[in-house]
Structure formats: C-alpha cells, structure tokens
Design a protein around this nucleic acid. Sequence first.
RNA 1: GGGUGUGUAGCUCAGGUGGUUAGAGCGUUACGUUGACAUCGUAGAGGUCGCAGGUUCGAGUCCUGCCACUCCCACCA
Length: 879
Amino acid sequence: MLDKNYNPKDFEEKIYQKWESDGDFKPDMRSGKDAFCIVIPPPNVTGILHMGHALDDTLQDILIRYNRMLGKKVLWQPGTDHAGIATQMVVERNLAAQGISRHDLGREKFIETVWQWREKSGGTICRQLRRLGASCDWSRERFTMDEGLSAAVRKIFVKLYKDGLIYKAKKLVNWDSKFMTAISDLEVIQKETTGKMYYYKYPIAGEPGEFVHIATTRPETMFGDTAVAVSKDNEKLKHLIGKNCILPIINREIPIIADDHADPEKGTGAVKITPAHDFNDFEVGKRHNLPLINILNPDATLNENTPFPGMDTQTARQKTIAKLEELGLMEKIEDHPMVIPYGERSNVVIEPMLTDQWFVDAPVLAKEAIRAVEAGEMEFVPKSYEKTYFEWMRNIQPWCISRQLWWGHQMPIWYAEDGTVFCEETEEEAQAAADKQFGRPVKLTRETDVLDTWFSSGLWAFSTLGWPDENSEYLKTFYPTSVLVTGFDIIFFWVARMMMMSMYAMKRVPFKKAYIHGLIRDEHGRKMSKSKGNTVDPMEIIEKYGADALRFFMAAMETQGRDINMNENRVAGYRNFATKLWNAARFGEMNGAKPVKDFDETKVSFVLNKWIIAKAKEASAEVTRNLEAFRFSDAANSVYQFVWGTFCDWYIEMIKPVLYGDDETAKAETKATFSWVLDRILVILHPFMPFITTQLWDNLADRDEKLILHSWPQNEVVDNQAKEAVDWVIEAVSAVRSLRAEMNLPAGAKLKALLKDASAEVVTYARDFAGIICSLARLESIDVLHDAVTPDMVQTVCRGAAILLPLKGVVDFAAERERLQKELAQLDKNLAGYAAKLSNAAFVERAPAKVVEEEKKRQADALANKAKVEAALARIANL
RNA sequence: GGGUGUGUAGCUCAGGUGGUUAGAGCGUUACGUUGACAUCGUAGAGGUCGCAGGUUCGAGUCCUGCCACUCCCACCA
C-alpha cells in the first residue's frame, strides 16, 4: 500500500543507500553496447553544494541515468579537487582561531593538518551530491592529491619540461600579497572603483624652473620609476626627449625617453615608467633597457628602496603626496573612475610583481587544442561557445603555474648548488641525473613552489581513469569521455586546460562534447552572492520539496544558452507534479490495477487503451529525441505534459466509467493497460525524478528488475488508429464544458445532449463513448437529434457536429446571443484571414500544395461552423 | 575599445530548419467537496512577440538599422 501522501523524505535517502550498496552505479563492463562516461567537474574539497552544482550535477545525472537505461557501459567518475588556495585558506583560518599560524607549524606539519582536515570535513559535498541523487560510481572516487593523480601530475610535468614547454622566467606576475603567491590572470578580478588621479611634476635636470608634468593613480610607485616616456609625435612635449628629470624626495635622476606607449591625448602626455610594477611599463622598460627597481615586499609594504620601508601602499601614498606638497610639486587631485585588480580568493589588491616563476608554454599547447575543435573532434553544445573558446585560445598567454603556497603538488624540480635544474619524477632519479652530470655526489634542494590547482584538474579526464597506466581497463574503455557538462564561467579555467593537457598527453580529446550551461541567478536575475545575501541553499530546497522536485526544476528550466532564475514557486509546482503522479499511482492501486507480467501492449483491443499506449510511446520518443539533443527542458516538459495533461486529466477520467462498470473484460484490460502506462511513465521519468519513480516501481509490484537498470524504450511502432476517435471525445467534452461554464449552468444539472449535422464517424464515436462523454461532461445522455431544433436549445460546435443542449427555461437567451455573436465574430475574423490568403494568387501558386490544402480545409471547417452558429442565432433571435 | 547574449501574458520563461487563431507554470477571475489528488478539478480573462525598415505568397522566427539591458575579454598614466 502506498502512503496517502507523497512524502519524499520518507524514502529518498533510503533508496539512495540501496542503489549504492547494491553497486547499481558501477558500469556493467560486460555490456556489449557502447561506453558512456562523464567525469564530474571536481568540486573543491572545501566546498558545500550550491545551486550551480545542483544544476550541473542534475544534468549529468539525467544523461548518466538515461544512458545507463540504454544498456551502455556507464561510468560517472566522481571526485574532488584539492583547491590549493581555497583549502589552504580554510585550514589557515581554523588555525588562526587557535592562535596558530602555518609558519608556527612548518610546512610538513601544516600539510599534515590539511590532510587531517580533509579526512574530517572533506566529505561534505559528496554526501550532498548523494542527497541530490547523483549516481556516481563512488567506489572510484578520486582526489587530485591522490598518489595516482599526483603521479600523473609529475609525469606530465617532466614531459613538458623535457619538451621545453615548461620554463622558469623572471617576469612580472600578478602577486597576491595576502597569500604571498603568484596567481594566474584568470584568478584576478577587475573591480570598478572611483579612485583619484594625482597630478604633479618632476624638475628637469639642469634646467631650474622647468618641469615635466605627470599624472598617475599611484604616486607611491614613483620610487620605482626609471624613466618618463613621451611620444615622439607629441609636438608639445617632444622637446623634453633626451633630457633627464629628477625624482623628487629621493633625488634620483631618470631619463625622458621617446615611446608611443605615452598617448598625447591621455593624462599629461608624459608617463612615469615603473617597469617593475606595471605590465605596460615592463614592456616599455624592455624596449629601452631600463633598470627594474622593485619597491615592494612580498606583503605589499614598501621596501628599503623607498623612503617608507614597511609602510603599506595607502599610507605611503599619502606620505608621498604630503612630501610633494611640501616641495611645491603637487598640482591637483581629481576623482578618476578606474578598475582595480583584486585576488579572487584573498580579495586584496593584486600587485604586478617581478619574481621568478614557472610557466607553461600555453601558446604551443593551444595549437592542437584549437585544431581538435576546428576538426570537430570536440563539439561545444551550444555551438556558439566555440567562438569564445577560439577567441581565448588564439590569444592565450604563457600560463604561470607556480604558486608560493604549501598545499598542492610540489614541483618535481631540484636545484644543484650552482643552480642547475634537474626535473625528474622522483628525487632518486633527479639525484642520479645530477650525480651523473657532475661526475660526483651532488647536494640537491627541491623547489618549494607548488603547482596551480588547475594543472592537476587539467589532467582530470584521464588521470582519474588510470593514466599513466596505459593498460588501465577503464582508460581503454572510457577515454575519450562522452561529454563534459559545465558552466560557461569555467571554459577558460578548465575546459581549455583539459583540452591542452589531453591533446598533449593523450593525443586525443578528453571528451567528445562539452555541454555548456548558464548560471543560476536569484529570482530577479541577479547573480547569487553571499555578500548580497540572495543565495539559496539547495539542501534547504531538497529538505522542503524533495530532491526530485529540485532536479525536475533544473531540467525544466535548462534551455540552451540561457541563465536560470531561481524560482521557489516553480520548485513547489514540480513537487505538486510528483504528488500528482503519486496520487495517480494510488488511484490504480485502489482500483486493483497491478502490473501484468508479459503484458503485450500491442494486443489491446479497447480504443482508450490503444490510444493511451500510443500516446505513451509518442511521449517516450519525444523524451528520447530531446535528451539526445541535450534539450533538457523540452524533454522534461514532454514527460510532464504526458503525465499530467494526458494520463491524469484524460485517461484516468475516461476509464473511471469502465472501472466502475461491469464489463469484466474491459476492466481487466484497462487495469493492465493502466499499469503498463504507469510503468512506462516511471521509466521515462526516472532520469529526472529517480526517487519517486523508484519508490513507486518497488511498491507497485514485486519484481526482480530494478528501475534504475530497466531498458529504455527505443524505436517503437506507434499505433495511432484510436487517435481520431478519442480526440473527438476530448473535443466534444471540452466544448460541452465550455458551454456549461459560459452559460452559467449549474454544475450538478444533468443535461441531455443532442448531436446535429453529425458525420457518420461522429455518430459512431458518440455512441461508443456515450458513457464516458456523459461522465466527463456531466450529461444525462448524448443522442442524435431527430426532431426539429427547438428554441430552448443552446448550441456549441465541434469538429463534425453541432452539440445542442435543451434547456427548458434554464437559460438566459440574451447571454446566449452574446456568446454566439462573439463566436461568430471570431469565426469571421478567421475566415477573413483564410480568404485573404486563398484569394492571393501568389500564395496559391507558390506555397507548398500541402499548406494550401490545409488552409482550404480550415476555411471549409470554419464555414461549416459559421453556418451552424448562424442557424442557432436565428432560432433564438426573438426569444 | 572588442565580443556575446537577451528583450514574447502581471511575474518567471518555452517557442530546432519561416506555414493553424503565439504556448507553459505561477498569479488572477468564476464555478466546483464529481468514489487518486484542494499539493486538486472545470472554464475564462490576460500578449500591436523592444522600435523602425526590408526579404518572402507568408515573419515571434531570416536580413539591416536603432533603443534598452546582461555577461565576457582587453585597456584606462
């Protein structure tokens, strides 16, 4: 017996545990069919599930479950990312709460602490994914810091190094002064702010009273200036080129050089050049061989190359201005809208800083990654994202992969005393190589830097499947993976890097398709953020409405290329949908419907049953077609419409008279059909709502076969014989119901309906389905009119007949006339349209014959209807 | 500055290759306790498809221009 109410909390978690302990998520390696594999975008091990995950992982689970039901070898490979900065930050924060810094612990102890933390708290997000219903093969869960994945990292690193694609260079990089590490361009967030533009002047050397006027947003960087640049085309200022000016306060002389970086239209036309602290100035410095003066400490305080060592930049800026003021060199300060770079994680201002860092030669790796997409080896869905990808890949810069952190993959680099670099997968190999090269035992020290987290994520598609073991069964079976599902915000971070790394290491794409979805926003379309306080916790939604409702919401809202606005009402609506299905199942149970083993649905004889079976097969085909095309919302709506709009609203209502009647043959077939269709619904709804479908499947009958592994309907023949008849019944019932409502007829009044001008088929339909029509339209009877029409009859028209309801004195004829006039007006409007089209020679001539035929038929139908309405109107004209 | 996407009912959104009278959910109005379901049922109201041109027998759909908004990238002394 099913519970009276649908209560997802009662069974969702239990069902999940059963699936997992039964091993239902493991691929059936003996299946003769294709392999299907998705690698999960690994969430940060520190993370908790947010709406973005809920969307991403729901879509993946739908594809996974669908393909599993198709009988393929299906693997959803789960795991988490060690998330260098994020994790180090979390653990450091915990330590700070105990008054400990990571430096107190030392590197080794600190890393140990991180591992302990991960043991204790790292499993949250995977538990939440289970709650969502994600059918990952957890027995294969991986972590980017696992030994296997670390081995993959070392192997690729060494290979890249030996191929000359990893190199060390002293370059200007984005420096995060909170974590005291370099970060990549992508980890820098530009923020709009209103800053100040400071105008002041530098005296010209040897020409008292002469000055060069400067405008800058960062006066404190003047201590690192090694030139002032002026455009050679700047008529007003070019006379200064070749002279020297004097940096006030520190009285250092620097040259005035000619460089087109100085735009005569901007600022004062003369630009201070600080090569060690500005990306543009760095380039200018290179062109003119200027010295580089670093003025900052790693924590972004000024260093001893300035008059303000140890001072932070803001304070130093005020001090500098004050000094310039004192010297009479300040001219003005203006408000200035500007964009300031911040660290994605640290939220501190990012400083361009001259440091030694390691780089991957991304422009070289990008070539194959671009070619593979051009050649269609990997396809973006929707295709438009290809453009974004190409744009970025074609302009890619060297990728800074070294981080001055502790948590991460330590680079497999060793230095000899003289600085010679040895890059090997193990210390032993490095030592051996060094000893051999030097011809004596050498003392090596290991590079302390760790790798950018995205370096290991870039290998995810093959490292999780067993690489570097080329003989791994999983690697052979599942690589390249089938599809990657992820948000557009991560195309550069991850998709691009996986493409580069996979093409380099595997010579093949990591996935054949990349399905890119949008963001989940709040209900007004604003981005969700903790600071705005508009985040929605998926676990709370699941708690309130069940995982199935949230999943269905995600699927139903997912249309390609668009962001999704969170809408709790809509989730509630899909919970109601689940309730509806639950009650439909209860209806069957209460009427003794049970799945019939070996039921042959092609052998049913009753029209209603034939009809619903055909509809169910059509719906199945629609879902299949839409899922194959990644049209999630269309797929979800196909099931929704069938379950609610067809099965519940019509089929269940239409079979009631049969079930309550005494034709035992009809009853038996109808019950069996009902159960067959309900089972079919459970099958095609399962990828979207795995919990309720399983709960019903398991409770409606004792059966060995599991729904999660049930076969998906394919290539069915749809028998549409019954369509005409049932469609007419639906039309007739709707017409009578409308009429009753418009005429304000009492809901309880049993009326005798009469058919006029009915075609032969319609008469048959009306006779065959009289009981059903009467039940649904609340009629006493439906017959063919033999006598003359009497004035007390109201009329409605439907295909192939007019339906009359005799209403002795019940009806308001003025209202009826009004209603008929309205109907007539609508018909006339339509007829005008048809006539206009059909009298247009060009239309008749050029439009396809089929379209013209359809138009003619519409016209004929409308004309027939018009005649009936006019007749009715005439009859009651004087009443 | 370069690029992308969006603009359809009060709200949130569907409308693959142009072809009925433009749809859904929520909300709203009227009616309804009909032997699955009030987390429900029945019927209705509600839209000049951002604006202006163009192509076409036919445009929400294709083209051009404009307006408004979103996002991404780069840069801003």
